[in-house]
């Protein structure tokens, strides 16, 4: 059973997640004509910038976030931006798209100048997220849990962040029982993806370095 507070929390987070998406004019560019490697680099950089802006707009709506210390807010966003980006991309790539669009997007990433050794784990992650068949509420809550990770570098008031995260964890756990009654391990599987995300994020700096060199 959900408490009234939990119902309200879920509604606010899901609405904000649904509302704050990458603008269509940015995503449309990805499907346009062929680009050179340099143009691909610029385009994917523009996408990344847009993703961060969307992430911040979404995060502002998480109840309690704006009451945290301002520098802690920055530290949380800085520490989670890459992971949130991977999550959002996974969900975007797993959506049903018109025929041919997935291929165009994948080709663009393969031709972006990023080394194949980094692309493979990224697509493996996207696939493993797709296999979970998360509902929108679960996607929104999982992203929120990623953002509210208390042990990010430079976070001062970790207990305050932990309190906010625990509320969302409890809500997600209940959601999993409700939506996946046949899979008692579903909640644990979702949390397992967060560990995978951390590993991906860890290699992100290396990936960027190899990208620049190429």
């Amino acid at each position: 059973e959900f408490t009234t507070e939990q119902q309200a929390l879920m509604r606010v987070i899901t609405d904000a997640y649904n509302k704050h998406q990458i603008p269509q004019d940015v995503t449309k560019k990805l499907l346009q004509d062929q680009y050179s490697t340099e143009e691909n680099f610029l385009l994917l950089t523009e996408m990344a910038t847009s993703q961060v802006q969307v992430l911040v707009e979404f995060t502002k709506n998480i109840p309690g976030f704006l009451s945290l210390d301002r520098e802690d807010q920055i530290a949380l966003l800085k520490g989670s931006a890459v992971e949130a980006m991977f999550l959002r991309s996974a969900q975007a790539l797993n959506k049903k798209m018109p025929i041919g669009h997935t291929e165009v997007l994948e080709e663009r990433i393969h031709k972006s100048g990023i080394s194949e050794e980094f692309i493979k784990p990224m697509f493996n992650f996207y696939k493993s997220i797709g296999e979970l068949h998360m509902v929108l509420e679960e996607q929104a809550l999982l992203t929120t849990i990623t953002i509210l990770t208390p042990d990010r570098p430079y976070v001062k008031d970790q207990p305050a962040v932990e309190r906010l995260q625990e509320n969302v964890l409890d809500l997600l756990r209940k959601m999993c029982v409700l939506h996946h009654p046949q899979e008692p391990q579903y909640f644990a599987r979702l949390l397992g993806r967060l560990t995978e995300l951390r590993t991906l994020s860890h290699y992100h700096a290396e990936m960027l370095a190899s990208w620049k060199v190429n």
């Binding site: 990344a48 910038t49 911040v56 301002r70 807010q73 920055i74 800085k78 931006a81 960027l208 620049k212």
Partner: peptide
């Protein structure tokens, strides 16, 4: 945001926008 500085700039700017509102 190809480096951490760029990333922090974008975050700060997006957060401050909220303050001005």
């Amino acid at each position: 945001p190809a480096n951490n500085l760029g990333l922090e700039d974008i975050i700060r700017k997006a957060l401050m926008g909220n303050l001005e509102e």
